[in-house]
Simulated scan of single mutants.
Amino acid sequence: MQSLDALTQEAIRLATGDTPAEAEVARQLQICNACRYCESFCAVFPAMTRRLSFDKADVHYLANLCHNCGACLHACQYAPPHEFAVAVPQAMATVRRQTYAEYAWPAPLGRLYARNGLVVALATALGLALFLVLALALNGTLRQGPLAGNFYAVFPHNLMAGLFGAVFLYVLLALAMGGSRFWRDVRPASGAPGAAAEATHHAMALTYLGGGHGDGCNEHDDRFTLLRRRFHHATFYGFLLCFAATCVATVYHYALGWAAPYPLTSLPVVLGTVGGIGLLVGPAGLLWLNLRRHPLAGDVAQRPMDRGFIALLFLTSATGLALLAWRDSAAMATLLAVHLGVVMALFLTLPYGKFAHAVYRCAALMKYSIEKRLPSGIAVGAD
C-alpha cells in the first residue's frame, strides 16, 4: 500500500502535470509552509510563504533560489526517517538539474546534462588532443628548445584569438538564451527600485551560504561551518581575477601594442597568479566538502557534474601556474598545449555543466529582491 506522502505527491503531479521531481518539491514545500520553523534560514522560506500552492515556475524559481547550504535539513523534524521524508536540499537539487536541461540552448543540447561527467571527460580529451596535434603540426614546436616564454612561437596569436573568441561568444550566447528563457517564465509582474543592487550584493557576497544565523552551512554533520562559503569565494573571485588578467592582456596587446610575454610583476601576470591560487584552493576545498556531504544534502546523480566542473577549474589553474613557472624552459610548448586544452574543455562545457547554476541563481535572487518589495497577493479569508 502506498504511503500518505506518496499519494499526496502523485495527486499533485496529476493535478499540475509536473514531473515527479517538481511534484516532490511542491509536496515538501506544502509541509514547510505549514511548519515554518526554517522561515529565517534563507531566502527560500520567506519566498515560499508568499504562496499557497506551487506551480512549475514557482518550483523552478525556489529550487534555484536555494543555495544548498543544508541548514534546513539538519533542523527539520520531518526529515528522514520521518514518514514525511522532507529533504528540501535534495529535492531542490534534483529540480535544479532539470532546470539546466530544460532551459539549455540550443534545446537538444540540454541532454548533455544527463551524462555530464562523460561530456567533461570527452571535452577534456578533445581539447588536449586538438592543441597537442596543433603544436606538433606547427613547425614541431614541442621538440624545440626554450622559447623565452613566447607563447606565440608555439601558437600564433590570431589562431588562439580566433579559436577561443568563437567559443567564448558561443558560451555567452548559450547562457544568455537559457537565462532569458528562465526569466521569461519566472519574472515578477513589475520591477522595484533597489532590487538589482540588493540581488547583486547577495550574489557577490554569497549571503545565503551563511546559514540561518550567519554561522555557515551544515556539511556532513550537524556542525556549522563557513568553509563552503569561503571556498566558493576563493573559486568565484579566483575565476574573476583570471578573467581580468585576460582582459588586461587583451588591452595591452591591441590598445597599447605591448606583446606577450609580460614580466612577472606586470598586471596581467599578477592578476593571473593571484586568481590561479584562488582557483587551486577553492576547487580543492569544494571537492573535499563534496566528497563528505550527507547524501540527503544534494542530488547524488548530480555529483559527476559537480565534480567534473570542480576538476576542470582546478586543472585550469594548476596547468596555468605550471606554465608560468616553466615558461622559460624546454617544457613550455607542451605545458602550453596541455593548458589550452584544459581551458578549451572548460569553455566548451560551461553552458552544459555546473557553471550554468550561476545564471539561474542570479535570476532567482533578482526575482526574490523584486518580489519581497511587492504586496504578497495572498488574501486570507477574502470573499
Score class of each variant (00 low, 15 high):
residue 2 Q to D: 05
residue 5 D to K: 04
residue 6 A to H: 02
residue 10 E to M: 01
residue 23 A to G: 01
residue 23 A to V: 02
residue 26 A to E: 02
residue 32 C to V: 07
residue 33 N to G: 14
residue 38 C to Y: 01
residue 39 E to L: 04
residue 40 S to V: 03
residue 52 L to M: 14
residue 60 H to V: 04
residue 62 L to V: 06
residue 66 C to P: 12
residue 68 N to Q: 15
residue 76 C to K: 01
residue 77 Q to W: 14
residue 77 Q to P: 11
residue 82 H to G: 09
residue 82 H to L: 00
residue 85 A to G: 00
residue 87 A to T: 02
residue 93 A to Y: 07
residue 95 V to R: 09
residue 100 Y to L: 08
residue 101 A to M: 12
residue 107 A to M: 10
residue 114 A to C: 03
residue 120 V to Y: 14
residue 123 A to F: 14
residue 126 L to Y: 14
residue 133 V to I: 08
residue 137 A to G: 15
residue 140 G to Y: 11
residue 145 G to N: 07
residue 147 L to A: 13
residue 149 G to N: 05
residue 150 N to R: 10
residue 157 H to Y: 08
residue 165 G to K: 02
residue 171 V to L: 11
residue 173 L to A: 13
residue 182 F to Y: 15
residue 189 A to V: 10
residue 192 A to R: 02
residue 192 A to T: 02
residue 192 A to P: 03
residue 195 A to V: 05
residue 198 E to M: 08
residue 203 A to H: 12
residue 211 G to W: 05
residue 213 H to I: 08
residue 218 N to K: 14
residue 218 N to A: 11
residue 224 F to K: 13
residue 224 F to N: 09
residue 226 L to H: 09
residue 231 F to E: 04
residue 234 A to H: 07
residue 243 F to A: 15
residue 246 T to V: 06
residue 246 T to A: 04
residue 255 A to S: 14
residue 263 P to M: 10
residue 265 T to A: 11
residue 267 L to A: 12
residue 267 L to P: 04
residue 274 V to D: 07
residue 277 I to T: 00
residue 278 G to R: 04
residue 280 L to P: 01
residue 281 V to F: 04
residue 285 G to Y: 04
residue 286 L to Y: 08
residue 288 W to L: 11
residue 291 L to C: 10
residue 293 R to G: 01
residue 293 R to N: 05
residue 295 P to G: 02
residue 295 P to A: 03
residue 296 L to P: 07
residue 297 A to H: 14
residue 298 G to E: 06
residue 299 D to Q: 02
residue 305 M to A: 06
residue 305 M to S: 04
residue 308 G to P: 10
residue 312 L to T: 07
residue 312 L to H: 07
residue 313 L to N: 09
residue 314 F to S: 00
residue 319 T to H: 07
residue 326 W to F: 15
residue 332 M to L: 03
residue 332 M to P: 04
residue 340 L to E: 13
residue 342 V to D: 12
residue 344 M to L: 15
residue 344 M to R: 10
residue 346 L to H: 12
residue 349 T to S: 12
residue 352 Y to I: 03
residue 353 G to W: 08
residue 354 K to D: 08
residue 355 F to D: 15
residue 356 A to Q: 13
residue 362 C to R: 07
residue 365 L to E: 15
residue 373 R to Y: 06
